[in-house]
Design a protein around this nucleic acid. Structure first.
Lengths: 346, 346
DNA sequence: GGCAAGTATGTAAGCGCTTACATAACAAAT
DNA sequence: ATTTGTTATGTAAGCGCTTACATACTTGCC
């Protein structure tokens, strides 16, 4: 039940009210709020007192309309469902906060069309800059963005040959390192559970990293089984089940991310298989959950927080008018934990 | 490296451009976009063609400034870190989408001051309505909200005696049902790992639900141990460790949510305890992970999606000017899975 | 044919803010 | 005392849109 206890009379103060209250012009009030050192200390204090007293807070729409600037950054991530992007985005947001900028997040569900629409929406909403995940998208999308002169930062990927700057990591090299560890353990029957590679350059790079490992170690990658599936715990489990019906049965399953790996691990256990004795499983991302499973997940650690922070810094510099920026590649690292071991003796 | 391939000349069309292009006035263009049936079919088609051709999309700031409406709903959740709010919020967002509204999300980190600030920010940004988690907050916050005449919907809680309408569930009754099951299993030494109860009415209600269960079953709740901690897997684990040092050692640990329970479960296992043979553990929320642990988590299922959807519908009705709304209480349900069993024979 | 009652479109006044430019106030230099 | 330069504040023109009101055009009916 809503008790409509007669609310206090609606009065939302505007600059004009503050100006009158402080005995100055609206311009001075505006300056007090936006570039305080342009106004004399004494005046400033008077204005700020008026602001306080009236409970004034500037109207965002009016401000953005006049200033042609929203102090808002848009980010479009593939999904909020799992924790993969959470930590990096959190750091991104925190860093933006130190510049007085706000973050607007949208998720595309790994769907290119939806992503394009979200980009349009965020730009229409006046986003001063955009954070996008991965380089791959339709050229028309980039055309639209360039037309509106909106700075873009790409993250969760690193490719200096692409037109947009990125702060990320080398998905291919990272996965190659992981796959090499798997090969070194003695595994020869290896399978990959990957995200759908179409429209996802990170997934493609990771699979190609596995192949690169085979080559670098002098093996043939013809026999490598790759299953593509959506990211979810259950899908990971299903893919794992499918893999276990193959002959020869893979002794190691390399997963495109931790969520998939979690699903595989859980399925293995509920199938009565011991990990890593009967089968090895590896992940990618090193989300919090990876340390909590039993055994803990062997995975590729990604410096999510550093990545988010640095992406925010550089993107904001671009927004603030500084010239184009170089890309930055952050180091990843294989975290050996409990799910990778030598193949079974058989 | 950023290749600044000379971008196409910047030209962002405005209503005036579209109007001229279609040979009508700006008012007509505006009407075409906002209330299409007010304009004749023939004219409308002409205008829409111009819109298409110029790639026009209305400036959000200008539109909100003029219309005094943003079609934006703000939501402030305690945390994005774990999955607890993800599903409900997703449904909330989807439902809003069907009304043409957008969602702005902020997180407060369970901190009342931060939450108050976020509320101010969202209102300054012109949010037409607000989704808040739980009823409890400082009266001055509600005063501010009422002054601005911003409709508020409370969720993840249900209390029809509170001034703001809510769409949620009865935290107390839900937890009472769970605790009764635990008691029925024969447990007498029971501990609770709760979120910090200060400023969190949901946590308080849940603990009080456990006590209510003791009473309803004719037991004394004096011996009930309650540990408060932040929500995180690790904190849950630490709390669990601490509980296991108590004498008599609890045979069942009721957790305030699934994340805490997950931490407890994992810690139990890494301590070499068998669940539920040596100790029972229960959760709350039924997030995806709860079904994936081994054994799967016995927990309280909350209809997150229904809750989100219904909250969106009702909040939007309030925004659209319909009168005050009743609160809605959704049913919860104890999901018996693998982590609750009878106490050990000893 | 003329009038009332619609219906479709145009005109123009803001919405609340920022900011280029104008002005005022003052200090330093002549 | 006048000029010049510097700094602090004021004036007012928009930013791109919506919408109340005015106007023009239909149509139906006596």
């Amino acid at each position: 039940m809503t008790t409509k206890k007669s609310p206090p009379t609606e009065f939302v103060p505007t600059v004009a009210d503050v100006a009158q209250h402080a005995g100055v012009s609206t311009a001075t009030v505006s300056r007090c709020l936006n570039s305080p050192d342009q106004v004399q200390k004494k005046t400033r204090e008077r204005v700020l007192a008026a602001v306080e007293e009236l409970g004034y807070s500037p109207n965002f729409s009016a401000r953005s309309l006049a200033a042609k600037r929203t102090n808002t950054i848009g980010a479009i991530i593939p999904t909020m469902d799992n924790a993969i992007f959470a930590r990096g985005l959190q750091a991104f947001q925190e860093e933006l906060g130190t510049f007085g900028a706000t973050l607007l997040v949208a998720s595309s569900g790994y769907h290119p069309d939806l992503e394009a629409e979200q980009i349009r929406t965020l730009i229409a909403r006046g986003a001063d800059g955009l954070l996008l995940i991965g380089h791959h998208r339709d050229p028309s999308v980039y055309e639209f963005i360039d037309r509106r002169r909106v700075p873009v930062m790409v993250s969760w990927a690193y490719d200096p040959t692409q037109p947009k700057p990125s702060v990320g990591f080398d998905n291919r090299a990272a996965m190659q390192a992981m796959a090499e560890r798997v090969l070194e353990m003695g595994h020869r029957h290896i399978a990959v559970i990957s995200a759908v590679q179409a429209n996802n350059d990170r997934a493609r790079e990771r699979v190609s990293g596995v192949r690169a490992a085979f080559q670098s170690r002098g093996f043939d990658d013809q026999g490598l089984i790759v299953i593509e599936t959506d990211y979810s715990i259950e899908r990971g489990g299903n893919a794992f089940s499918e893999l276990m019906t193959q002959t020869p049965r893979p002794t190691a399953v390399i997963c495109g991310n931790d969520v998939l790996a979690l699903g595989a691990l859980q399925r293995a256990q509920s199938m009565g298989m011991r990990v890593p004795d009967d089968v090895s499983i590896t992940g990618f991302d090193d989300i919090e959950l990876a340390t909590v499973t039993v055994p803990a997940l062997t995975t590729v650690h990604v410096p999510h927080r550093d990545m988010g922070r640095e992406a925010a810094r550089r993107l904001w510099q671009m927004v603030d008018g500084d010239g184009p920026h170089d890309s930055l590649c952050l180091p990843t690292e294989v975290r050996m934990r409990g799910t990778l071991g030598p193949p079974p003796a058989t």
